[in-house]
């Protein structure tokens, strides 16, 4: 399990320095795949006899379907349609973003191991990976300017959050998980549509163009 969560972390870190959408998506697929396995694995280890296979399996399958298959498919399709194979514009250099990513991992380690977090049922073995993934997802959105990258960043964040939920609570209520996956799916769909529109109008997927509205 540690290995998987390590993959989980490495993929998100790797993403920080990629400047190619397709590559990011593949990394995302890898991350989601590890998440979906973790979603079964973590409860199995931590709950022992109380482990509810049905519950966890459904969650994992959902994760797999939505995050490994559907969302990357949507993003890749959109990306194909946009035919933008050029490099993703970034707010900072790749090296710097990687550096900050590493710093964020360190920060999440500090958060995770600090007294305040550890005394209040806020951490478990995997929450470190989850928190750093959330942070990196957020930072990914900040550092990469392309529209699709922001979608990917959101998914990375969500992945982190899901890992966090699994690591803390061994899985959320089913109806809730259904809801969140549905929302995420529709959300990414809508974002994809919008990316399409924006590309149609602005002929670019750089968020730099989206700064008309201010004040």
């Amino acid at each position: 399990m540690n290995f998987l969560s390590f993959i989980f972390l490495i993929t998100s870190l790797w993403m920080l320095q990629t400047r190619n959408v397709t590559k990011s998506v593949y990394l995302l697929i890898l991350q989601s795949l590890s998440l979906s396995i973790l979603m079964i694995g973590i409860p199995m280890i931590s709950l022992g006899y109380d482990f509810n296979l049905f519950h966890s399996a459904i969650a994992a399958i959902l994760t797999f379907f939505v995050k490994v298959v559907l969302l990357p498919f949507i993003i890749l399709r959109v990306n194909k349609k946009l035919r933008s194979n050029d490099l993703i514009p970034m707010n900072m250099s790749q090296g710097l973003s990687l550096l900050i990513g590493i710093f964020l991992i360190g920060f999440s380690q500090v958060l995770n191991s600090s007294g305040f977090f550890s005394t209040s049922h806020l951490s478990s073995g995997y929450s470190f990976f989850a928190i750093s993934s959330i942070l990196i997802g957020c930072f990914y959105m900040l550092s990469h300017r392309a529209l699709l990258c922001q979608i990917i960043g959101i998914i990375v964040m969500e992945n982190g959050i899901f890992l966090y939920s699994v690591s803390l609570t061994n899985g959320m209520p089913l109806i809730f998980e259904f809801g969140t996956f549905f929302d995420l799916l529709v959300g990414v769909l809508v974002m994809g549509i919008m990316t399409n529109y924006i590309h149609g109008l602005f002929e670019s997927t750089d968020t730099e163009n989206l700064t008309e509205l201010k004040g």
Partner: peptide, 12 residues
């Protein structure tokens, strides 16, 4: 007014 600069990154 600089707070509302239009950059989505800032908002994030």
């Amino acid at each position: 007014r600089f707070l509302q600069s239009g950059y989505v990154h800032f908002y994030l």
